[in-house]
Amino acid sequence: MLCRNLNFTIRNQESWALLGRNGAGKTTLLHCILGIIKPTEGSIAIDSVPLQNYTRRELAKRVGILFQDETNSLPATVLESVLLGRHPYPKPFFRDCPEDLRSVEDLLRELSLETIKNRKIGSLSGGEVQRVAIAMLLAQEPNIFLLDEPNNNLDVGYQINLLEALKHKINKKKGSILMATHDINFAARFCEHFILLLNKDEILIGNKQEILSPQNLSKAYDCQISSISAEGKTFFYPT
């Protein structure tokens, strides 16, 4: 049992952040929403329909996840990988679907991956791999974007640009984000709602102002965290 009494609703166009220490259950919670792990108690519903009533494929059209390092031992190129994101959608028996190819090419252009689209995944840098994973998730076009450490391996420029691109897509499509991250300031920049896993029995859920305080964060991470305000924003740092 990782946590109990967790109860929250994510609405359209909301961005949620999931904060907590290593091993607190962030990834496990994301996997529960993805339907990979069954919660021992309670239930999860999407559009008021319980998760277990969806087929895998139907679920994949609604929920998508950005993975924490997926290594691959069999070769594949960037383009082939991103195209896999279209897997949940119907296709001709043998041929590739031309619309899929077109939308994936557009995505690669948007995320400036076009120049490396024929490179093998194994030959890419960590940051490039992460950008390919983001492209794959965008190709899947889910409504709920689960992001597991989205800024892993990304430089600050890409962290901001990619997340802006993602939020833009979501606002256009009416989707929502739930991200698990260790970067409090990154989460504060992009999310309005927070889930802070303090320990097994104590979880704080609420909007940014309620949850993000030095006291709560110090308690969650078991170290002294202070805040400073500049240009109308609040930043948190360990002391």
Partner: peptide
């Protein structure tokens, strides 16, 4: 040939395959 696409997804690992809708 018929399951070729599913094999493409499966070759990326179980978690990826599950999240892309493979049973």
């Amino acid at each position: 040939i018929a399951i070729g696409r599913s094999l493409n997804v499966l070759s990326r690992g179980d978690t990826v395959a599950l999240s892309l809708g493979l049973n």
